[in-house]
Design a protein around this nucleic acid. Structure first.
Lengths: 255, 255
DNA sequence: AAGTGGTCTAGACCACTCG
DNA sequence: GAGTGGTCTAGACCACTTG
């Protein structure tokens, strides 16, 4: 296993260069599922880096879920498939892109309103503070997928009503024009039957199964930035999740 | 802010002792949401540890989602609520316990069978390899919540049929008797209408909204250990998720 | 006994943010 | 310019697993 030397003049950190190489070898099949990765010691000697740096590279692979470590034994390639497409904080546009579908929207409402109590509670706003409300039917390849009603604090993006074209990606506009990065969202999903309004907007029968989502999205600081209620067609939508057994904050929680 | 000295003779790692202290202060409100945590430098000097150890403590808080770091600025307490109860890999028993409900089961089937194709595909088994099949109605406080059908490779727990009391927790038995630890699961959820069999077992009307889950659970090595199909009542069950914006393995993925 | 990962030290240089 | 987190080094001791 001959490896080219690391680029020490690069701005790319050494541990990251090492991570990418190992990832390549895993993908190429040189390192197979269940097999041990080179040990910290070995990486350290072969590539001429300190053991801490080698360790950081291996740890980053563990964080990606690509490998796992066992004390006293070694670090091994996970048998898990990589390609799986999990649920992330994605805009509808990004999600459709990932599915290789063409995203679209039909705008039903786009306005500034006083926040109802559930919205102001979720967004930590003062009573009757203004929010921007955007209600859209979301389409994939021109077929209706769901109805989405988004509320954003007006204070966060004061001139959004003027500057945003509601046919385009909201998240992209928030990021490019306001530097707003949503990194995390809490979501509650329920199984329900379509109401007559849902049915009309989505082109399904009343009483069809639907997902009902209530989602609050947060900035890195933990400040809530978006509150969304949406209804998605049960026949065209599935939720895919990867559940982990993270140690709870209450009990353990070591690294 | 007076802190007692660290216990250097303890088996508990220093970084972990520091993490717990900071966590206590966050919980107690001494450190408030949005405020900076002590810097790596400061922790290092005040507690007499190296900067790397201080850093590890802060990083572990970031991994828990309790704090976040900004280069050049500092590490801050997240504004996110801690108490939220997210979806993890939990057995039904653990999940009900977390909800303060009493778990129960009505066993419908408990047997060894040849794996159907979907099961053998999910569990990476050879064609017609044997699995243990356990079908139960799951109850919370004696009320039916869902129907669950679990398949486990027989090779993984050869005498489970004799040793397991299907009224008790399967995960607890797997852990205690076989050392099998499930650390991760991939799950697909669909919104559907109850079939007549679902309706009969769950005490609801045919055509009521239900969640339909297909779940594959994995050991740390990535080896699949369990395949479950289940149907849960839409009126008594919600899915709560925290979605993150993890960098993908394909593109970036730095720490 | 040899090899592994887990923790820890005492330094160092850098890029970044802020006043 | 002072302070911050991000990366990196060259050592060290430990607990654990395996032959």
């Amino acid at each position: 296993m001959e490896l080219p030397a690391l680029d020490r003049r690069s701005v790319v950190p050494l541990y990251y260069q090492i991570q990418r190489r190992l990832l390549e070898q895993i993908r190429a099949g040189t390192l197979k599922a269940g097999e041990p990765l080179p040990s910290e010691q070995e990486i350290s000697e072969r590539l001429g880096v300190s053991r801490m740096t080698a360790r950081q590279a291996l740890k980053s692979l563990c964080n990606l879920g690509v490998a796992y470590s066992q004390r006293g034994r070694g670090t091994f390639v996970s048998r898990m498939k990589l390609e799986k497409n999990f649920r992330q904080v994605l805009s509808f546009s990004e999600e459709m892109e990932a599915r290789r579908s063409r995203p679209g929207s039909k705008v039903i409402a786009f306005e500034a309103v006083s926040a109802p109590t559930d919205v102001s509670a979720a967004l930590h706003l003062k009573a009757k503070e203004k929010v921007i409300r955007l209600k859209r039917v979301r389409m994939a390849d021109s077929r209706p997928m769901g109805v989405e009603c988004t509320c954003l604090p007006l204070a966060l993006c004061p001139d959004l009503l003027q500057r945003f074209d509601p046919q385009t990606s909201l998240y992209r506009t928030l990021s490019e024009r306001y530097g707003i990065q949503i990194v995390l969202a809490d979501e509650v999903a329920e199984a329900r039957l379509a109401t007559s309004e849902d049915a009309r907007l989505l082109g399904i029968s009343k009483g069809s199964p639907v997902f009902f989502f209530t989602r609050t999205a947060y900035l890195q600081s933990g400040q809530p930035a978006e509150y969304v209620k949406s209804t998605y067609r049960g026949d065209r939508y599935k939720i895919t999740n990867r559940l982990t057994h993270q140690n709870k904050v209450n009990s353990l929680g070591r690294n």
